[in-house]
């Protein structure tokens, strides 16, 4: 069963040539007739199908469109062209403490954060105790989150995001902040979710994470899918491309190349 389906998805950011961040600038530009738009195509004709319980790794260099693709899947950005269909609830694992109110207690944050992630209040009530157990911070749960350590915040966030079984789990560069024990529990939990049918999309620059979690891999470059298939093969292809680019870059002029290459690959 296909859970995530992207068909011919393109996404254009229209960036003003001279960005106006103030109204004054805006009007000056309008008057001078300089409101030309530069279109940056962040995704280009992306086709992707992900089956139930699959775990797909998305790799590519900075600016390749990885996070944009995840945003399209989670419904934050609507594609300019193409169709997106996702069956069920998408749960992102947020960066440390996003969506938390540091003045509120851990327990109050469970309600707030889980609602933001799309759970209903009834579901939250039912899951509250298991979230507290999994996070392992029961003793501090009534304390304001501002008194927590980074690890505790991460534990609570992860516990909330994975408490109910989402149909799609999104891991975007979730950096390791917890201690070894917690990391292990996280991995187990992700494994559990996958075996209970959750589809997972992982963005990471860490090969080990990709190899451990993913069953399939997608290489993005300049907003296009350049390769997909077996994890090893795609990682190898990515390595080859990176090497090739660095070699040809050091052959020509040095510093500017990285930036302009990035620009060229993403601009239209």
């Amino acid at each position: 069963m296909t859970v995530v389906q992207l068909r011919g998805v393109s996404l254009d950011y229209s960036v003003k040539e001279h960005t106006a961040t103030s109204i004054k600038e805006y009007f000056i530009q309008v008057l001078r007739g300089r409101r030309k738009r530069k279109v940056i195509r962040a995704l280009r004709e992306v086709d992707l199908e992900v089956e139930r319980a699959e775990c797909v790794g998305i790799i590519g260099r900075n600016g390749a469109g990885k996070s944009t693709m995840l945003k399209v899947v989670s419904g934050i950005l609507r594609p300019t062209r193409g169709t997106v269909s996702v069956d069920g609830r998408v749960a992102p694992i947020l960066e440390l403490g996003t969506g938390f109110d540091y003045e509120l207690s851990g327990r109050e944050n469970i309600e707030l954060n889980a609602l933001l992630l799309g759970l209903s209040r009834r579901e939250i009530k039912a899951l509250e105790e298991s979230i507290i157990d999994f996070s392992g911070i029961r003793r501090s749960i009534e304390q304001p989150v501002k008194s927590y350590s980074l690890g505790m915040v991460a534990r609570l966030g992860f516990a909330i995001a994975t408490a109910s079984i989402p149909s799609v789990l999104i891991l975007d560069e979730v950096t390791a902040v917890g201690d070894a024990e917690f990391m292990l529990r996280c991995q187990r939990r992700v494994d559990e979710l996958v075996s209970s049918g959750t589809t997972t999309l992982v963005v990471s620059h860490d090969e080990t994470t990709i190899r451990r979690l993913c069953t399939r891999c997608v290489l993005l470059e300049g907003g296009e899918i350049r390769a997909q298939g077996k994890v090893d093969e795609v990682l190898a292809e990515y390595g080859r491309r990176t090497l090739h680019r660095i070699d040809s870059a050091s052959g020509s002029q040095s510093h500017e190349t990285e930036d302009s290459a990035l620009e060229a690959s993403s601009a239209v």
Partner: peptide, 9 residues
């Protein structure tokens, strides 16, 4: 802002 970049609320 940070939240809105990550979650479809």
């Amino acid at each position: 802002a940070i939240l809105l970049r990550k979650v479809a609320v």
